[in-house]
Structure formats: structure tokens, C-alpha cells
């Protein structure tokens, strides 16, 4: 099950995984992949986290690409947890990324974790405009029709006395914010000031999970 909605007169689909599908453009959008997060942690002298995060993210991405058959991909920034960390990934994971890119028009948007070129194929851009929409890492306060990531939004919802917390899309008339797609990513509560201030009062949250669904954005 996925969730179809219209943003800026554009029909879009929110996938259970947190990816965004634009069928008319044959495009899949994902944000905040944070490849190489465990590698970066190990380099810093802390405990070695289970080094399975990158392949877990790749598995899901591969499955979404197969399901949607998308031939265009935009990664909305923070695709790599640190600028040069791509080169530190095990060889099979680097090859895996290359394999997914084969035959696809692939755009890496720059993020705060991975500014500038990152030494892996694909187009590197600060932002990209497509039809009525513009794709960038961090939302601006003025632009309209903007699709971004960065905040890792997560909605908390109270169900008869129990709390359910899920990564979510946030959408209002002006902007659409994607949840983080990477395996080792936390989330920012939609009630946080940064998100409340950014989103308009009528904003909705589209929860990821087995049955994506929209609710008024919890604040």
C-alpha cells in the first residue's frame, strides 16, 4: 500500500519505505541515506556499530526501484554520512551503488554532511528544478513547490493511551519534507520548534509504515 496525494498540482505517491514516487516523471526521490554512518563512527574511535547499515539501506532502495521501475533518481542530500566516506565503504557496497545507478539518471543533491563532489558517479547539484517542483536538501522559508529532507521528521500519535512514533512526510501548500531513508537515522519530532515554525498551520503528516496515511501534522 502506498499513499497518493497532490502537491503543487503534481500527483505524487508516498511509499511505505519513506521514498517519494513521481509516476509522471518516472522519478524516485529519497532523502538522508547517510551511507557509511557506522564507518564514520568507527573512524572516530568509538565502539564499532554493526556495519550493516549501508547494505540495509541499499536493500530497501533496490526494492523500491524494482517496484516503481523508476529510471530517474534524486537523493536529497546527506546521502553520505561524511564527505569522503564513500571511498571507505566495502568494495561490494560501492559496486552495489554503481549497479543501481546503471541505466538511470541519478542526481546527488548536496547536503550538510556531504557538500561538494563525493567521488561517486552521478550528477552532483546544489538543487534541481523539475517542472513546478524544486529539489534541495534544506527547506528555505520563501520558495514554493519545494521538496527537501534534512530534518528527519517523525510523528508521534496517541492511540487510546499508547504512543506510536513513525517517520513521516510533512506537506503543506508550499513545501514537502521527506523522512530520512537511511538505516541508522534518528528522527525529529514534528512538535519540535524547527518544524512547527517551518510548516503552515494546515500541514499534514503522511506516516510511513505498512499502510501510509495522512493526519494533521502533530504539533
Amino acid at each position: 500500500m502506498s499513499f497518493a496525494f497532490t502537491f503543487h498540482e503534481t500527483p505524487l505517491v508516498a511509499l511505505p519505505s519513506g521514498a517519494l514516487h513521481w509516476p509522471a516523471r518516472d522519478l524516485l526521490v529519497v532523502s538522508d541515506l547517510h551511507f557509511g554512518k557506522s564507518a564514520r563512527a568507527a573512524r572516530h574511535g568509538g565502539a564499532a556499530l554493526p556495519p550493516y547499515d549501508t547494505r540495509d539501506t541499499l536493500l530497501r532502495l533496490e526494492s523500491d526501484l524494482t517496484t516503481t521501475g523508476a529510471s530517474h533518481v534524486i537523493c536529497l542530500g546527506d546521502s553520505f554520512d561524511a564527505p569522503e566516506i564513500g571511498a571507505a565503504l566495502p568494495e561490494d557496497e560501492q559496486l552495489w551503488i554503481t549497479r543501481l545507478q546503471a541505466g538511470r539518471d541519478w542526481t546527488w543533491i548536496e547536503g550538510n554532511h556531504d557538500p561538494g563532489p563525493i567521488g561517486i558517479g552521478g550528477t552532483h547539484l546544489a538543487q534541481r528544478a523539475l517542472g513546478p517542483l524544486v529539489f534541495r536538501h534544506i527547506a528555505t522559508s520563501t520558495e514554493r513547490g519545494e521538496v527537501s529532507g534534512h530534518y528527519h521528521p517523525k510523528a508521534r500519535i496517541s492511540l487510546r493511551g499508547r504512543t506510536l512514533s513513525r517517520p513521516c512526510f510533512l506537506v503543506d501548500d508550499k513545501r514537502l519534507i521527506l523522512p530520512a531513508y537511511g538505516a541508522y537515522t534518528g528522527g525529529l519530532d514534528t512538535g519540535a520548534h524547527a518544524l512547527s515554525a517551518l510548516m503552515q498551520p494546515n500541514a499534514r503528516a503522511i506516516l510511513t509504515g505498512p499502510t501510509p496515511c495522512a493526519i494533521p501534522m502533530p504539533r
Binding site: 502506498s2 499513499f3 497518493a4 500519535i157 496517541s158 506516516l207 496515511c213 493526519i215 494533521p216
Partner: peptide, 22 residues
């Protein structure tokens, strides 16, 4: 519970007619 709550929230907020799940 989620389905139940979503229906309730969307009804009270008047958003229920806007989109339909795929």
C-alpha cells in the same frame, strides 16, 4: 488503532475528502 485514529482525525479536521489512498 491507527486506522481508527486516522479516520477520526481526518473527519474532525475536514481533511478526509482531499486524498484517497492508492
Amino acid at each position: 488503532l491507527l486506522a481508527e485514529e486516522v479516520a477520526r482525525l481526518m473527519d474532525t479536521s475536514g481533511l478526509s475528502d482531499v486524498d484517497t489512498p492508492d
